[in-house]
């Protein structure tokens, strides 16, 4: 695990996509996916993360889980930039269907080391056709 984490593996980089389609808390999928993504980040692969269908609710601002007695894990998405995960795609149609816009989601950013650590947005709003094309170019798609 460490060898891969230090980039000392055999240098094969694959395109991994994590597809999130469930609302958080009602099922364990969202949390499981987040943990897998954080672990996978150590392997220095080409990672993208998608939020589509009810998955867009995972990034909702202002989640308050006190009343349901579960941990609010939404702050951890803001750490994805630190893990060099900055290709986060939101399907536009899924947002619109739910009466939501990007403003309803938490801002996710990363710092570009090659551009004087400038803070850039990791969130990319993509349409259905664009997302279909992104999926088609992956080596591995993991569905949650």
């Amino acid at each position: 695990m460490d060898e891969a984490g230090n980039g000392g593996g055999n240098g094969v980089t694959k395109k991994f996509m994590y597809m999130n389609r469930k609302a958080p808390y009602g099922t364990v999928y969202a949390l499981e996916s987040l943990e897998v993504v954080l672990i996978a980040a150590a392997f220095e692969q080409d990672i993208s993360v998608v939020f589509a269908d009810d998955g867009v609710y995972q990034l909702m601002k202002g989640q308050d889980t006190e009343g349901i007695g579960m941990k609010n894990f939404s702050p951890a998405y803001a750490a994805l930039g630190d893990y060099d995960i900055n290709k986060i795609y939101i399907e536009r149609e899924s947002l619109e269907e739910r009466g939501l816009s990007l403003d309803d989601l938490q801002a996710l950013t990363w710092e570009d080391e090659d551009d004087d650590w400038k803070e850039k947005s990791s969130l990319h709003l993509v349409g259905r056709d664009e997302l279909a094309a992104l999926i088609a170019e992956q080596d591995i798609v993991l569905s949650f």
Binding site: G5, L38, A41, A42, K71, N72, F73, P75, A76, A78, A79, D82, Y83, W117
Partner: peptide, 18 residues
């Protein structure tokens, strides 16, 4: 406190450096 996760070593190293 901010992210509700303990950072991986690689992330910790980078952040401490910064």
């Amino acid at each position: 406190e901010e992210y509700q996760i303990a950072p991986a070593v690689r992330v910790l190293t980078k952040a401490i450096g910064k």
